[in-house]
């Protein structure tokens, strides 16, 4: 038992930022980002305690956690568009200085708004590849899709994000 707890403590410290960023990219606001990251880690813990020591040791934590997070985010937002508007005053940014913070906040808002406008399959693919910096192989593994499908979804997402015509991208 203690072994699993140590593994989990390290896992939380190592992956918390990554999972929070993933939650933010998929939901578009801090509150939901934190909930996605927290739910992901708690689900991971409940699974870990049932695994054999060998399985825990051989676990590829990054893709495994991403797969859980994608499911958590999907379940939370089934049938919903991600929330775009943040409540003022509830956020604490880690960047110093009010100007830098405001600027970055505006950028973040634009980026997440653009991501929110994408169809979910494009959004998930491009977020895993570029926000989370997974390889195509890893992203394909996380999404349970062929690599080619992920590549073309990322490609289409990027076209839409750059403002290129959706219809032509679908040709």
């Amino acid at each position: 038992m203690e072994g699993v707890e140590r593994v989990f403590e390290r896992m939380v410290h190592e992956h918390q930022d990554r999972l929070y960023a993933l939650g933010y990219a998929l939901t578009g606001n801090r509150h939901d980002a934190e909930e996605v990251a927290q739910d992901t880690l708690l689900r991971a813990y409940r699974a870990l305690v049932t695994y054999s020591p060998d399985r825990v040791r051989e676990l590829k934590q990054r893709p495994w956690l991403h797969r859980i997070a994608i499911n958590v985010a999907r379940n939370r937002h089934r049938g919903l568009r991600p929330r775009l508007v943040e409540l003022n005053g509830s956020e604490q940014d880690t960047t110093p200085g009010p100007e830098a913070r405001a600027l970055r906040q505006a950028q973040l808002h634009d980026v997440t708004a653009a991501l929110a406008g994408l169809p979910p399959r494009y959004r998930e693919a491009v977020v895993l590849r570029y926000v989370q910096d997974l390889s195509y192989d890893e992203a394909a593994q996380v999404l349970g899709q062929p690599v080619g499908t992920v590549k073309s979804n990322v490609h289409r997402a990027l076209k839409l994000l750059r403002g290129e015509n959706h219809d032509r991208a679908n040709d």
Binding site: Q16, D17, R18, L19, Y20, A21, Y24, A25, R30, A33, E34, A37, Q38, Q92, T94, Q107, L108, D110, V111, T112, A114, L115, V126, V127, Y130, V131, Q132, D133, L158, L161, R162, G163
Partner: peptide, 19 residues
């Protein structure tokens, strides 16, 4: 328009204090 550098910037977000 959103570039891949914007997406990478998003990936540098840090979990809040106490998380």
């Amino acid at each position: 328009t959103v570039q891949t550098t914007d997406l990478k910037e998003l990936g540098r977000l840090k979990a809040p204090a106490g998380f």
